[in-house]
C-alpha cells in the first residue's frame, strides 16, 4: 500500500499484511487503547518511507481514552534492529476505540516531544491512528510530523 503526503511531497509504503497485523492487535485490546512503535527506513533520496515492522512496548497503560507506552527494555531492541538490518524507529501507532482517526492535542504534543527528543534522529516521525470498534478497523490515517504540525497522507 502506498500513501502520499502533499505537505512534504513524500511517500509511505507499507505491506497490507503488516497493517492487518497491527489492526488485529488493536481489535484484541478493544475497548482500550493500545499502540506501539513503527520501524522502517528511508529511500536513498529520503523521499520514500518503507515501514517494515512494528514493535510492541514491553510496558504500556491502555485505557478507553488514553494510551501510555514506555521504552523500558526497548533500547537494545532498537539498537539490534539497526545493527542487523539498518532499520530504525520511524514513528508511532495507536488506536482510538470508538473514536475517529483524527489526532488529538495529546497526540500532537506527544509527536512534538518525540521530534525534539535528542535521542531521536529523525525530524519527521509518522503517526498511524486506527479508529476501531469491537470487531473491525473503521478507518485509519497516517500523518507526518513537521514544524509542530501533523499532516495526513492520502
Amino acid at each position: 500500500m502506498k500513501f502520499f503526503n502533499q505537505h512534504k511531497q513524500v511517500s509511505l509504503i507499507i505491506e497490507e499484511t503488516l497493517l492487518k497485523k497491527i489492526s488485529q492487535i488493536g481489535i484484541e485490546k478493544y475497548p482500550y487503547e493500545t499502540g506501539g512503535f513503527l520501524v522502517g527506513y528511508y529511500s536513498d533520496d529520503s523521499m520514500t518511507l518503507y515501514i517494515t515492522d512494528y514493535l510492541l512496548p514491553h510496558k504500556q497503560k491502555g485505557m478507553a481514552y488514553l494510551f501510555e507506552r514506555s521504552i523500558d527494555g526497548m533500547k537494545q531492541v532498537f539498537k539490534n534492529l539497526f545493527d542487523r538490518q539498518k532499520h530504525f524507529y520511524i514513528g508511532e501507532w495507536h488506536t482510538h476505540p470508538n473514536g475517529s482517526c483524527m489526532y488529538s492535542s495529546t497526540d500532537l504534543n506527544a509527536m512534538i516531544e518525540i521530534a525534539n527528543c535528542e535521542t531521536v534522529n529523525i525530524t519527521n516521525p509518522v503517526l498511524l491512528i486506527l479508529s476501531i470498534t469491537e470487531k473491525q478497523v473503521k478507518d485509519f490515517t497516517f500523518s507526518i510530523y513537521n514544524n509542530k504540525g501533523l499532516h495526513p497522507y492520502e
Binding site: 487503547e33 514506555s70 524507529y89 495529546t106 535521542t119 531521536v120
Partner: peptide, 10 residues
C-alpha cells in the same frame, strides 16, 4: 539508531 522518549502519552 533512534530511541524515542519514555512514558509518552497518546
Amino acid at each position: 539508531v533512534s530511541i524515542p522518549p519514555n512514558n509518552t502519552r497518546f
